[in-house]
């Protein structure tokens, strides 16, 4: 818990820390760390029920497009909310037809779901199609720190949801569902509801992250917004940091996203070779993720 608070405090104060020349750069890196970490936490939230989602790229994209399309008409916050709700609707749709699928089957079904959605974003008449969709910055661009603190708010929400799920009886329901649905049913867990609720909560956060991303990237195209790469990143971070926890994805996000940016700056050509090697080494020597390093209290 102290670790979580410390990290959050660090992010809250980042714009005011005396970082000298690197301040603005770190702030930009920090913003993307916040967004991708929130996405990772939202994935972990779903993973805790044993569902391996590859649809988080799609939720992210739905949120991004929803917010991007609505910002000019509704303003920043309502647009973000709407984008998030759009992602939630997508999750309900996906969840309600796939709730009987497990593990890899669910993974592939959710992958198929996001491929279909991406094609829709390409073909629908109001999305800007393959050319893409320009998105204005938050609050008309008047406040430079706006997107940073929006991203921070998304992460706060993700952490709050994750902590709630970790500390309430919901945790047991999720864990039981993950370990064996049959047993969970016997224990009186309403498996379907637990899975659906987890997916819904996860998608809402992912959608918000997508919306803020759109307002920072200023431009969306279906290939990028619905990218499979994003979905995979959402799953890599929690595994790297430590699954089924709040601190794990949080640590994983800070280290992994930060590491990628740093490697790209210092090594430049071929930095991804090192990145890939680090992932392999992490799995071989830190099977429980970064959390394992901290002397594993609870897995």
């Amino acid at each position: 818990m102290r670790g979580i608070l410390g990290l959050l405090l660090l992010f809250a104060l980042l714009p005011f820390l005396p970082l000298g020349a690197w301040g603005a750069f770190l702030l930009d890196v920090g913003l993307f760390i916040l967004l991708f970490t929130a996405l990772a936490l939202s994935w972990d939230l779903v993973a805790r029920t044993g569902q391996l989602s590859l649809a988080h790229g799609a939720f992210f994209g739905l949120g991004a497009y929803g917010a991007g399309l609505m910002v000019p008409h509704l303003g920043t916050l309502p647009a973000l909310l709407l984008g998030s709700l759009l992602a939630g609707a997508g999750a309900l749709l996906l969840g309600s037809v796939t709730l009987r699928l497990h593990g890899l089957y669910f993974a592939i079904a959710s992958l198929a779901f996001s491929e279909v959605l991406r094609t829709m974003a390409l073909k629908l008449p109001f999305t800007g199609g393959p050319i893409g969709l320009p998105v204005p910055p938050p609050f008309g661009g008047g406040w430079p720190l706006a997107s940073y603190y929006l991203a921070f708010a998304v992460l706060l929400l993700a952490v709050a949801l994750s902590l709630w799920a970790e500390r309430s009886s919901f945790r047991l329901a999720q864990a039981a569902t993950r370990q064996s649905e049959a047993v969970a049913r016997v224990l009186g867990v309403r498996v379907v509801r637990v899975k659906l609720l987890s997916l819904l909560l996860g998608s809402l956060v992912a959608g918000l992250a997508g919306g803020v991303y759109a307002m920072k990237a200023l431009f969306l195209n279906p290939y990028e917004a619905f990218s499979l790469g994003r979905a995979v990143e959402a799953l890599v971070i929690p595994i790297f940091g430590g699954l089924y926890s709040t601190l794990g994805p949080l640590l994983g996000g800070v280290v992994l996203v930060g590491l990628e940016q740093a490697l790209r700056l210092w090594i430049q050509e071929g930095y991804l070779v090192v990145y890939g090697a680090l992932l392999i080494l992490a799995i071989l020597f830190l099977p429980r993720g970064l959390l394992g390093l901290l002397g594993g209290r609870r897995g």
Binding site: A47, L52, G103, V232, L235, V236, I239, F240, L243, E269, G270, L272, V273, Y275, G276, A277, L278, L279, I280, A282, I283, L284, P287
Partner: peptide, 26 residues
């Protein structure tokens, strides 16, 4: 990692994929 959780195995092969692909790029 044969006895490791499925997700760990996936991350390992994913890391290998990134490594090999970018080695080829280099």
């Amino acid at each position: 990692v044969l006895k490791a959780p499925e997700l760990n195995q996936m991350l390992l092969t994913f890391g290998l994929s990134i490594l090999l692909q970018n080695l080829a790029l280099l």
